Amino acid sequence: MFRSQVQRKSRLRSGFQILELVFHVAIRNLRKTNGNAVLGLALSIFQSLMMVLVMFALFHLLGVRRIAIRGDFLLYVMSGVFMFMTHVKTIGAVAGADGPSSPMMMHSPMNPIISIAAAALSALYQQTLAAGVILFFYHTAFAPITIEDPVGVLGMHLLSWFSGIGIGMVFLSVKPWQPETATIATSLYQRINMIASGKMLVANGTPESIRSMFDWNPLFHVIDQSRGFIFLNYGPRYTSIDYPIYFALTCMMIGLMAEFFTRQHASASWNKGR
């Protein structure tokens, strides 16, 4: 008579509630770094723009402009920078998501998977907006842009994001056990990708001895394949789309298994002694 009755929810309703929660957590992540949402997005655009200008100037100073693919040289630079920024920002966002011992996990129905999904979506939104604004500005103010296969380029953009999620989940699974080590490893991987991503190289014109140093990196494959979709006269011969997909799925499975194991042993007192 006095027993509380729990109202069962349909799967469809539960799914929409989870999506709504992911949306609100993603908005929280966007506003976390800056209280002003518009200013935070403007800073993301400015970071990407500065990276493009620095890479453009570096190409000129090093005198390597001649190795670029035949076509718009600045578009060639942007193709590498946008994929790189999306990849490393996603890694940082996912690796910094709330873990099983976070105070946020005490509020039902919050869980680490929702936190990871929200962090990844917020990173994708920021970098997609930044790339879209910069490309639109360049197209209208300086030179018309022609992209051979826009759908393929969008697919590579999403693949750089997806591979960043997988790698970020591996770092996130280490974080509750060794927070300092995970933070250093995440930062180190992001810095290494400044060179290891191969955004300054054209895979078809790079000797095998040099190309072998970049083949392990999924971002190297994504950037080279994206240039095949952007430029009419370029067809990637030494990179593939399959490798980044399998690499990301493998990292994601490792991250999910490690996160499940961590969740079984997580304790709010872990961080008290640190």
Rank of each mutant, 00 (worst) to 15 (best):
Q5Y: 12
R11S: 14
F16G: 07
I27C: 08
N29L: 01
R31G: 02
V38W: 06
A42C: 14
L43Q: 10
S44N: 15
M51N: 07
M51W: 12
V52S: 05
V54W: 02
F56H: 02
R66G: 10
R66D: 15
R66A: 15
L75S: 02
S79D: 05
G80M: 03
F82T: 00
M85S: 12
M85E: 07
T90D: 03
A95F: 10
G96N: 09
P100W: 05
M105A: 07
M106C: 09
A117E: 02
S122F: 03
L124F: 14
Y125N: 00
Q126F: 01
Q126L: 10
G132W: 00
V133D: 03
L135T: 01
Y138M: 11
A141W: 02
T146P: 00
D149I: 06
M156F: 12
H157C: 10
W161H: 08
I165G: 04
G166L: 09
I167V: 15
F171R: 01
P179D: 07
A185I: 04
A185K: 02
A196Q: 06
A196F: 13
G198H: 08
M200Q: 02
P207N: 09
S209D: 12
D215L: 13
S226H: 04
R227F: 09
R227H: 08
F231E: 11
G235S: 15
Y238F: 15
Y238S: 08
Y238E: 08
D242R: 09
Y243T: 10
Y246C: 09
F247G: 06
L249G: 05
T250I: 14
L256A: 12
W270I: 14
N271H: 07
K272Q: 10
K272N: 11
